[in-house]
């Protein structure tokens, strides 16, 4: 049995809407082992991005436990302590890689420099970044700026950045949402391929049923709220 790298127990999160509180995640529990992948699906507003935010500490749950790489975060009354905030930042720096639908790159830096920056923040010495760009199929564009390459190439570079930091967990928020079908499939192929090679866990929020079906697990948030 593989080691559990990410787990949530009775996780809840709601937002105030006027006088009411809309609960988008209600007592959600799951576990994910190293090398496994999980798709998070659901309609718009069902809480997919919110869940990803909770799993990397960018938002704080109202209640519940999150365990990331043996570090447990128990939340009470929806407030994160300063120590927990620091711990989450450290996890995002070295353990959790995050990819969004777009704008993952610093626009004033080349693709290679972006990868170098991300790897350096994760504490890795300069040297292997070019390898990841080539792995993701954008080695030839390494010295171009983000606005000089296509959307698909930018997403591949964003994935290269994440893998260059050797994460234990990758959170991807609709990573192919802004791409055409063919490019989306190419990017997804690369993502799963490198995820398998590196053995990291992958949590991916998506609307795309085909993409979700390629994951080991599927978490349906339904209508949300």
């Amino acid at each position: 049995m593989s080691e559990t790298v990410l787990a949530a127990a009775a996780l809840s999160k709601g937002f105030r809407s006027g006088e009411d509180t809309v609960r988008v995640i209600d007592r959600l529990s799951f576990t994910l082992s190293a090398g496994q992948s999980m798709a998070v699906i659901g309609r718009s507003g069902s809480g997919k991005s919110t869940l990803l935010n909770l799993l990397c500490g960018l938002e704080t749950a109202d209640a519940g436990d999150i365990t990331v790489a043996d570090q447990n975060f128990e939340v009470k009354q929806g407030v994160a302590s300063p120590a927990a905030t620091c711990q989450w930042a450290l996890l995002r720096k070295r353990t959790i890689g995050v990819v969004f639908q777009e704008a993952n790159l610093m626009p004033a830096m080349t693709l290679l420099e972006n990868v170098q920056l991300r790897a350096s923040l994760a504490g890795h010495r300069a040297g292997g970044e070019m390898h990841w760009l080539e792995q993701l199929g954008v080695g030839a564009e390494a010295h171009r700026f983000p606005d000089q390459v296509s959307g698909g190439q930018r997403q591949r570079a964003a994935l290269a950045m994440v893998f260059a930091m050797h994460p234990e967990i990758t959170l991807a928020d609709e990573p192919t949402g802004s791409l055409d079908r063919q490019t989306a499939e190419e990017v997804a192929d690369r993502l799963f391929e490198v995820q398998r090679q590196t053995g990291c866990a992958l949590v991916m929020a998506t609307h795309d049923q085909a993409l979700a079906s390629r994951c080991d697990h599927c978490l349906d948030l339904g209508e949300g709220g």
């Binding site: 991005s49 990803l52 935010n53 960018l58 938002e59 995050v98 969004f100 777009e102 704008a103 790159l105 610093m106 626009p107 004033a108 700026f145 983000p146 606005d147 000089q148 390459v149 959307g151 930018r154 928020d173 802004s178």
Partner: peptide, 17 residues
């Protein structure tokens, strides 16, 4: 304030440099 995982739509296309 709390950060969001959603960048603004204006940043699509690589952002200005």
């Amino acid at each position: 304030g709390q950060v969001s995982l959603r960048p603004g739509a204006s940043l699509a296309g690589g952002g200005e440099r």
